[in-house]
């Protein structure tokens, strides 16, 4: 397999994640879109690490991405739970209190 097939898989994950973020109204659904985007980026990093001379750096970066994604999910979930405690829903369209 060559590099471009892996990059295409990464592109599909990225696009799916972007659409997921844009269309889902459930807050946790939006979070899942973010995870997909990050994972698409990860596939690109690891593919470049394997096929180019960049070597280990791609794998290091993808490990950082995985760790940061876990942290981001924890905080976003805490926010979602907090929002649910106050509004009894996690429909992101309901979060319009600051709208002018």
């Amino acid at each position: 397999m060559d590099l471009s097939s892996y990059l295409l898989v990464g592109a599909v994950l990225f696009v799916a994640g972007v659409v997921c973020m844009a269309t889902k109204r459930n807050g946790i659904g939006v979070l899942m879109g973010v995870e997909l985007v990050l994972n698409g980026a990860n596939i690109n990093f690891v593919a470049f690490a394997n096929y180019t001379k960049l070597g280990l750096d791609g794998q290091v970066i993808s490990l950082f991405v995985i760790v940061m994604a876990a942290a981001e999910a924890a905080v976003a979930l805490a926010i979602a739970l907090s929002f649910y405690n106050n509004h009894l829903t996690i429909d992101v369209d309901q979060a319009n209190q600051l709208q002018g």
Binding site: Y6, E35, N39, N42, V46, Q59, L63, I66, L77
Partner: peptide, 26 residues
């Protein structure tokens, strides 16, 4: 796919941290 790309550690970290940790949280 990560295992296919010769990144065993990253693939395993993906399984442990992402799938086993973050998604359980989700």
């Amino acid at each position: 796919l990560f295992f296919l790309l010769n990144a065993d550690f990253v693939g395993t970290a993906q399984l442990l941290v992402y799938v086993g940790g973050t998604l359980v949280l989700l």
